[in-house]
Amino acid sequence: MTVADMTINSAPRVAARKTRQRSRLPWLMSPALIFVIACLLFPLAMMLRYSLNHYDPAELMVSALTAENYLKFFSDSFYQEVLWRTVGISVLSTVICLVAGVPVAYFLARYTSALYKRVLLLLILVPLLIGNVVRTSAWMLILNDTGVLAAFLGLFGYTGRLNLMYTSTGVVIGLVSVLLPFMVITLNSVFEAIDHNLEDAASSLGAGHLTIMRQVVLPLALPGILAGSVLCLILAMNAYATPVLIGGPTFNMMAPIVYQQIAKAMNWPFGAALAFVLMAATLVMTIGVSAVVQNKYRKWSE
């Protein structure tokens, strides 16, 4: 038996093993895939279809192919107001998170030793895993008229009502506190990745710190800034606990009214439409922010 014989004979065996390996893969993935498709994608598709149905107070849902639910949303000023309020609060919260998050993330990346950083990151991460209900109820303690902030201001002689609970301001404060960890953690990994030497080089050429941030660090951190902002925007748009607890029952934002329509009013067609309007609005904002940021990036490098 020659070498040539042996090589030819072993080739099919190797090929067979490779196909066996490759054919094993679908089996490994199918349980998870089937689960997600059956329990998420299919129900979502069903909801989309239901958003085109007709709502009847007696029969609840009647099969149809109508756009009335979406029209109802866009023609009723009440719902328009809810959407714009949600958008406005989300954008404002995200911007504040950005302004507050950049210094913290930079601080963690440049000015902290490994141990200190681990402690601080843990401190920032733990609230993320506490849950929005608990975190928001903690803010209720601070913001209400008999709470911590009122007592603190009372030390300086301020005895008036705070008027923060049940207002947009209060909701924004609560949201910012909930979203900041997401922003800081996203930004931190970006700042870590930027070469320290670049900042030293800029310094050696005469740049002061603010100039270094503006001309070197932030332009290079733009992808991370974008990712953090998009993440915060999405979380803010879909927030439930903070608007409900701090905003109160008369303070309407998109996520709470989706819940009300689907589970309380049992108006599934309209509720479904609201859900998809919310997702669409979030998507449009995400694309818009990405486009604006990428445009600015081009300007910066000129």
């Binding site: 129900p43 979502l44 879909n238 996520a255 819940y259 689907i262 509720g271 859900a275 998809f276």
Partner: peptide, 14 residues
């Protein structure tokens, strides 16, 4: 990637 309130609603209906 899907908002909790949307997937929650979809599961409820389903």
């Amino acid at each position: 990637m899907v908002p909790g309130i949307v997937s929650g609603g979809a599961l409820f209906v389903f």
